[in-house]
Each structure stands twice: as C-alpha cells, then as structure tokens.
Amino acid sequence: MSYATSPARLIVACCALPLLIACESTPPELDSSLIPASQRKDYQLTMSKAKACPINLAELIDIRSSKDLLVRSSNGLEDTLYSLLQQSLEAMNVSPDIEAANSVKVVLNRAFIKSLGSNMVATVVLKVKYKPDYADEYSPATTFKGQSVNVNASVSEKESNQIAIDAMKTAIDDATKRIKSSLLHNCKNALSELEAV
C-alpha cells in the first residue's frame, strides 16, 4: 500500500514544483500596461491622487559614477537626463518651489540602456529619502526603479540618441510614479485640503 502511494506522491510533487517556481519568479511589481481593463480605472484614480499630492523637493542630486548611457554617442545626454528627471518630478507635483509639509530628497543613482535584439531597454534607479510632516528626520533611502522598452530599428546616430532620450524619459516617469504612489498614504491631509478648496 505504501509502495503504491509513493509514486503518486512523487507525481504530485513534480507537478507542483513548476507552479512553485513560477510563483517565486513572478515580478513583485505589476507593469501598468498589464493592468486588466477592470482595474485600470482604480489605477488611474490612484495616479490622479498621487499627482495631486504636493511634495517639497528638498534635494536632487546625480551621483552616477558613469554618465555613459551605453549608446553610440553620449554627447548631450548627461544634462538631458538630469533635466528629464526634474521635469518628471515637477509633473508629479514634486518641486523645490512647492511649500509642503512633506518633503523628499532624490538621488539619481544609476541610468543605463541595453540593446536586446531589436529592443532598447532603458533603466533608471533612484534613491529616495522621505520626511512626512510629523517627522523631524528623513527616512532611510528607498530604491525605486523605472524601466521602458523601445524598438530600436536601424536608424541614424541622431535618431538613435533621440530614441534613447525618449526611452529614458519613459523609465524616469515610471520611477517617479512609483515614488508618488508609495507616498500616497502620507498625503491624506494634503489631499483633503485640496478637495475642500
């Protein structure tokens, strides 16, 4: 009897193993483009609230050891990247010009582009320290990653650089949205004040 159940247990274990591996390898964060249509409205509402929440930008620095984005020419991309990050934060209502009780310090830690076949994958890594209105000190740094994939056809160097800039802009926007979404629970007072106006 025990001999008969042993192979059965082995078959069940073998069938369950791929499911366990699949669960462990699933990315923890869901790409917004993969959100089902039924949940998209809630996602858009969350992003609207995140964008409405004002946050003071106490510091924005670039500590990348290498400014080379691994494109054929990096000329002009270094300054562009910093300004793209600044614009993206401002679009999400994070600025040094905003007088808000909540504030952040943002560090541009890494930014790079890799060519994978016909695709250009842009990645940006930001480190963020946050200080809510009730705290005296900033939190330890939290890492936020943004990523985008663009098709990189056979184009001129100038066009390739523009594709790279567009890819980095999308990756930066992705990262800043993640930052604001993660801080939304600390913005209740600011949002209630905005709704009352």
Rank of each mutant, 00 (worst) to 15 (best):
S103W: 07
A100S: 00
V12N: 13
I179N: 11
V128R: 10
L184R: 06
M1N: 07
A22E: 06
D79R: 15
S139T: 05
G76K: 05
Q44G: 13
V124Y: 01
K49D: 09
D42S: 15
L70S: 12
L191Q: 10
K41I: 15
T80A: 11
A58D: 09
T5Y: 09
C53R: 03
Y138I: 03
K158T: 15
K177L: 11
L19F: 15
I113Q: 08
R64H: 00
G76R: 03
S156G: 11
K177N: 15
P140S: 13
T46M: 12
D166S: 07
I98A: 00
K67L: 07
K188C: 05
A196W: 01
K127F: 02
P140M: 12
I11F: 08
A50N: 03
K158W: 09
F112L: 00
V128C: 04
N75D: 14
S95N: 04
L10Y: 08
A141K: 08
V121A: 10
D166Y: 08
Q87H: 10
S115D: 14
A167H: 01
I165K: 10
L19V: 13
K105I: 04
E193T: 03
S182P: 03
S182Y: 04
D166C: 03
I61R: 15
D31K: 15
A153H: 15
C15I: 11
S25E: 09
D174V: 05
D42G: 13
T26K: 14
T170A: 12
D62L: 01
N186G: 05
E29S: 15
N152H: 10
Y134I: 10
G117I: 04
S65I: 09
K145S: 15
D166V: 08
A190L: 13
T5F: 12
L194A: 10
I11N: 00
E24Q: 11
I98L: 02
L34H: 03
A37S: 12
V151T: 10
T170S: 15
N189G: 13
C23F: 11
A22K: 05
S118G: 08
P7I: 01
S2I: 06
T176L: 01
I55L: 06
A8W: 02
S38F: 14
P36A: 01
V149N: 07
V128D: 08
T5A: 03
K131N: 06
A37M: 12
A91G: 03
D136A: 06
S88P: 12
S38N: 13
P140C: 10
A171S: 05
S192D: 03
L77C: 02
Y3V: 13
A167K: 00
L84H: 04
N150M: 11
S160F: 14
L85K: 00
K145L: 13
T143H: 07
Q87E: 09
I179Q: 13
I179L: 12
L17S: 02
M1H: 07
F144S: 06
A122R: 00
L84K: 13
K41G: 15
C15V: 09
